[in-house]
Design a protein around this nucleic acid. Structure first.
Lengths: 344, 344
DNA sequence: CCGGCGATATGAAACGTTACATATGCTATG
DNA sequence: CATAGCATATGTAACGTTTCATATCGCCGG
């Protein structure tokens, strides 16, 4: 009886796909003339006599044996897989996050089950349902549904969205980032600041960027204008707003803080069309600082979110052994990076 | 004995995380006064008397029962999960692909296990190893390692990279896209075309873009220049090349085809710095046409890859029941979209 | 009224592991 | 030398499903 599973490189043609079952521990045990339990120990790195271990390892290699995670998971109730629930990996912020989380998890020996929800609260619930059936060891979610039902025994870490003290949330310091942007702009000589926002209808952590900005302006006795739009409205209102605030070729604002870099780039283009120079006439700061953006030639002065650290922190929190004293909110520090749309 | 598992919304504080085991089919069977096998049938939509079905369903709801995918997977050898192996989800092309594949899979009831390899051939092999242990039902891979060893019984679909006739590959028509770009440029009056490429050291499908471009030029009796760089060299050589080909304020080329949109945007910026106008002095066509790019204000004339269709096709091929007559290569048609860097 | 048939429910075996209680072989001790 | 004690291997019983052979039931024809 030949149980060995041959592997082929992708380049080799293999017409003969005969259906031989994958070898099991039982097969390895027989091949190595050893008890089943011993084989198990070897693959769990438990103490086993040196000669036994060698015999088992050789037999396993000969047969091409691989542990069956499903059998193991059934028995141990640990699957070494965690669910990552995101609205949309297409968004550079989310995809950078996904990258970080996925690799942090894999480094710790965990698999990532990716689900995307398209911002749909019901899809979010369906994802939760699905991954719970799939016995994941934990969930990292960037979700919006405030009524999400989750097995309370299952570790859950929320990114960028605070739910309750018992659900750890990690985000960057959005309020602080807003303050930082205001500070920079004023420091660089701006006296008529403007905050521009576009985003989801449901309020989220990123709203605090504007709050921080306004607060910092107020604190310095400077009044600040804000225009906050929802996705549905599109960019057009910004264009109108800017156009209507030009008098004698001069914009009513000389420093603009945009809620994201993507918005900043759009605004920059609008300003350009309106005959305004950046940063001479108007200075512009965005928010995100996604590396990929910059690599793709997409640069503006910005408040950098530490996405990698958010990812790492989320994973660390999720996998922490001692789950008794988890922080309910971890706010990671942001930083300023000039990118040509400010006078440094 | 209370077996019911209560779920909580994320917003509810739940201090009492008492450790009650999740209910099993056995519990449901007992609760419904029905045999184990009957419960199984209900959850597999097999024929069961109407009253029995109702009793089981009610009992299950009462207990909050959920199928344990691991036990099921162990028994059936089908896990309804597939592995998606990508170099890096941060790249907009890959993330759009991931989005499409993930949602196509979830629509068909499959989970996506995401692994990223950072273009490392050894990491690729480790991923394969890992997902095979995890008993996925198939693999969709965008990998570079030509010596990847894979269980030949496991369905594998390669994206954008051809390995052998027995491994289905789906990609967009890169050669045709190159031809299309050449045709457009020449049609729009260009007479001195240039092809610019930067990318991985290992050759891939996307090299055919340049081949198609050159071929189409040659076919029309027009000679074409090419500069092909590797990632390691960075963008600087392009800058030097362009600068050295300006004579009396006039560039030696009047139409440039870039291997990606990202490159096109960089080149555009360089041309701008060199005092050349786009599209008046030089016309520029990129390749990819990623929607997200455009949304982020990142626009150039381009050859659009049908990423969604690539994703759908890949999933369809992977999940196809009849695996006897799989195509070895599916080339999806690309299209041209003006974006301001050409005279339409 | 009985035997047989079709339909449907039942319960045990198996899937490939882990974990635990037991067996085995040694060494050290009185 | 007998044996307690230790270390290590063994084998079996779960884990929660599916599947299949068997049991049960109701119905119809003779």
């Amino acid at each position: 009886m030949e149980l060995s599973v041959k592997h082929f490189t992708l380049c080799e043609v293999n017409s003969m796909k005969q259906k031989e079952n994958a070898p099991t521990m039982k097969d390895v045990a027989r091949e190595a003339s050893v008890a089943l339990g011993t084989v198990s120990k070897v693959f769990n790195n438990l103490h086993v006599g040196e000669d036994y271990r060698r015999r088992v390892e050789e037999a396993a290699k000969r047969l091409g044996y691989q542990v069956n995670s499903y059998a193991r998971g059934l028995k141990t109730n640990r699957t070494y897989s965690v669910a990552l629930i995101l609205p949309d990996v297409t968004n550079p912020f989310f995809s950078t996050l996904a990258q970080g989380i996925c690799s942090a998890l894999s480094q710790k020996g965990y698999r990532t089950i990716l689900s995307t929800t398209a911002y749909d609260p019901e899809a979010e619930q369906r994802c939760i349902q699905m991954v719970q059936q799939n016995k994941v060891d934990g969930i990292i979610g960037l979700t919006y549904n405030p009524a999400l039902e989750v097995d309370p025994q299952l570790p859950y870490v929320s990114i960028d969205r605070y739910f309750s003290p018992s659900v750890p949330c990690v985000s960057s310091d959005n309020f602080g980032g807003g303050q930082l942007a205001a500070g920079k702009l004023l420091e660089l000589g701006c006296t008529r600041p403007l905050f521009l926002r576009i985003g989801s209808k449901v309020p989220g952590e990123s709203d605090k960027r504007g709050d921080g900005f306004e607060s910092a302006c107020r604190q310095r006795g400077i009044s600040c204008t804000s225009l906050r739009l929802c996705d549905e409205e599109g960019y057009a209102p910004f264009q109108d707003f800017l156009a209507s605030h030009i008098e004698e070729g001069r914009l009513a604002f000389d420093g603009i803080f945009c809620v994201t870099d993507a918005l900043a780039v759009h605004i920059r283009a609008m300003l350009c069309e309106l005959g305004l120079r950046v940063p001479e006439d108007v200075q512009l700061i965005g928010f995100d600082g996604i590396r990929r953006f910059a690599e793709d030639g997409f640069i503006c002065s910005t408040i950098i979110q530490p996405i990698e650290r958010i990812a790492e922190t989320g994973v660390e929190l999720l996998l922490r052994e001692d789950r008794s004293n988890l922080p309910s909110l971890v706010c990671l520090p942001v930083s300023y990076a000039p990118g040509g749309t400010t006078k440094e």
